[in-house]
Structures are given as C-alpha cells and as structure tokens.
C-alpha cells in the first residue's frame, strides 16, 4: 500500500518530465522522481518498532541488531541525495545558460531558434 503510493509519486514526476514544455518544470519532475526513489529505498529498510541505527551501549550487540532498522539503505541514500543535488545544480546551470541565449524556457521555441 505504502509502496504503491510511493510509486504514484514517481509516476507524477515521470508525467511531469514527459509532458511539460518548460525546462524548469522538467527539472522539477526529475527532483520529484529522485525524492520518491530515495524514500522507497528507506521504506524497504524499515523494521516494525525499530530504533534508529545509533548504538548507545544500553543494548547488547545482538539485541541492538534485532531492533535497529537497516543502516545500509540509509548510508547509500545519503550518498544519493548529495549526488542528486550536484546533478540538479548542473541541470539548473544549463537552464540559466539556455535562458540567456534564447530568452525563453520553452523547449519547442529553443528548438526553433537553433543555428
């Protein structure tokens, strides 16, 4: 149920990328898709009545292992979020340059003014 709702969020981003003509909207669609994927990976690692993976030595190692949520998706999603920021920044820089050159964000007009 929750997984499918996360997938719906991904589909909203995909629809935005495929149908909008404004390049800023396309970048926004990419960010929405990225958010939904990150959330999905963290959802996969959640354990019922879990605790955060921070070991404060009040539990024995085996007990901690049984109760903590999965730390591996969290570590990899941390990487993914930061890389997503870099990629989106590059895309926005391209958008700004295109606007300076063509004076519009509309991709169909950018194609028309080529050359």
């Amino acid at each position: 149920m929750i997984y499918s709702l996360c997938f719906v969020l991904f589909m909203i981003g995909l629809y935005c990328v495929l149908t909008r003509k404004n390049i800023i909207k396309i970048v926004i669609g990419l960010v929405i898709m990225e958010s939904s994927i990150n959330l999905f990976l963290v959802l996969l690692g959640y354990k019922n009545d879990g605790i955060a993976p921070i070991n404060d030595k009040t539990l024995s190692p085996l007990e901690f292992m049984a109760r903590s949520v999965d730390p591996l998706p969290q570590a990899l999603v941390l990487t993914s979020i930061v890389i997503g920021l870099g990629v989106t920044t590059l895309a926005i820089a391209l958008c700004i340059r295109l606007y300076e050159k063509y004076g519009t964000f509309d991709i169909s007009q950018i194609r028309r003014l080529q050359g």
Partner: peptide, 8 residues
C-alpha cells in the same frame, strides 16, 4: 525522521 533515519 519518522522512519528512524535522522541523518537523512
């Protein structure tokens, strides 16, 4: 935060 991932 609710999924017990404070760093994220």
């Amino acid at each position: 935060l609710f999924l017990r991932a404070p760093d994220l």
